[in-house]
Design a protein around this nucleic acid. Structure first.
Lengths: 196, 196
DNA sequence: CGTGGAGTTGAATACGATCAACACCGGTGG
DNA sequence: CCACCGGTGTTGATCGTATTCAACTCCACG
């Protein structure tokens, strides 16, 4: 799993084996089973995760006990509570395991250490952040403007593979609709596309 | 207005007068009147704006002609279409002027140039991005979970000063509700707090 | 087997949207 | 100076989309 991490990073920013060796001393490797809750609101862990295998999610739980998914993280994605990781606040979201996962855990000093070891790491990080920000901008636009059906279509277009791995229940939660509504939207779409 | 920009930057990252002098050669200063549309979807401007005076907003317009506000930018805020600015795509949002504004315009090479001139600029940028990302995370959580009233309360808590400067119909658009609904929410809140 | 979670379907409900009318400025031009 | 106008905000009535609550099927998994 460390090898996966190395290959992923190398695709974005060049470094020597020796540099990676030093970098890897700053991280922890772990495996988690499906269903395991890794972070809870209030935790002071201040950690981020890079997924080498499996699938994680971050989400909130509202007053009525309903879950609202902030983000999915399949292989080669980062997932972190930014308030907790970079601003030293307690966590505000849950992180748990959707599919048995292997992760690289980094703590809040990782970034500085990484840049110390390998200055080029800063640009990789900036690029990553821009990408995340752009995706969130799009998602906000969607949540403001789109109907249930439009959201669903956008989702399967943007994340076709997630579509197949994530229970519908969670897709609905990610889209901000109920599982029942999603089920009806799917039925309706199937009906429409039948006469082709 | 350039002086404002300098003071703002200096609060985050140290640099010499000479460095700022070189930096300032990479930017353009302009003033825009209220109502002016600065960027339209499809534009290939690839620019970002730092507001030294006034108030800008970015937004989409849906099929029915309805506006959906992505972001407000009062004094000392950055506003940019990230896809356009950092990924060389055409713009996907409008940017226009809510209150007569003075802005610092940067183009897509600014970041690299700035880091070349002053390496410490990278950490400032990373911090800025983390902050933006964290705010967007929160907003997504809000849009997924909160009712009209909760959104409004969260907004006035988070941006009390914007509250006073922005027309209600734009607040409504930012919150993802109609102006009518916002008006009713306000009436209801006023009624509730009357018996104190 | 049998048990519990996921998905589907139906009926009733609710929240916010839409449509329409009107009051209230703030600015403009006669 | 005042009349007019357009835009903003308010209020009411109606409509529609998605939620809620409930029942049932279907698997996956013990």
């Amino acid at each position: 799993m460390l090898e996966d991490f190395k290959q992923y990073l190398q695709a974005y920013t060049p470094f020597t084996d020796e540099q990676f060796e030093r970098l890897s001393r700053e991280v922890t490797l772990r495996a988690y089973p499906k269903g395991r809750i890794m972070v809870r609101p209030g935790d002071e862990a201040h950690t981020g995760f890079f997924v080498t295998k499996g699938l994680l999610r971050s989400y909130t739980v509202d007053a009525k006990g309903k879950e609202h998914i902030i983000q999915f993280a399949p292989e080669n994605w980062w997932i972190a509570d930014r308030g907790s990781m970079y601003f030293n606040e307690p966590a505000s979201y849950y992180v748990d395991v959707v599919e048995d996962a292997e992760v690289v855990i980094v703590n809040r000093n990782f970034l500085e250490k990484a840049q110390e070891i390998c200055p080029a790491f800063a640009s990789y990080n900036i690029q990553l952040l821009h990408n995340a920000a752009r995706h969130m901008q799009q998602r906000i636009a969607m949540l403001l403007a789109a109907t249930a059906e439009e959201r669903y279509l956008a989702f399967i277009h943007l994340y076709p593979s997630l579509m197949l791995r994530v229970p519908q229940l969670m897709v609905a939660s990610y889209l901000g609709i109920t599982p029942e509504t999603l089920s009806r939207v799917r039925r309706e779409l199937a009906r429409k596309n039948f006469g082709r």
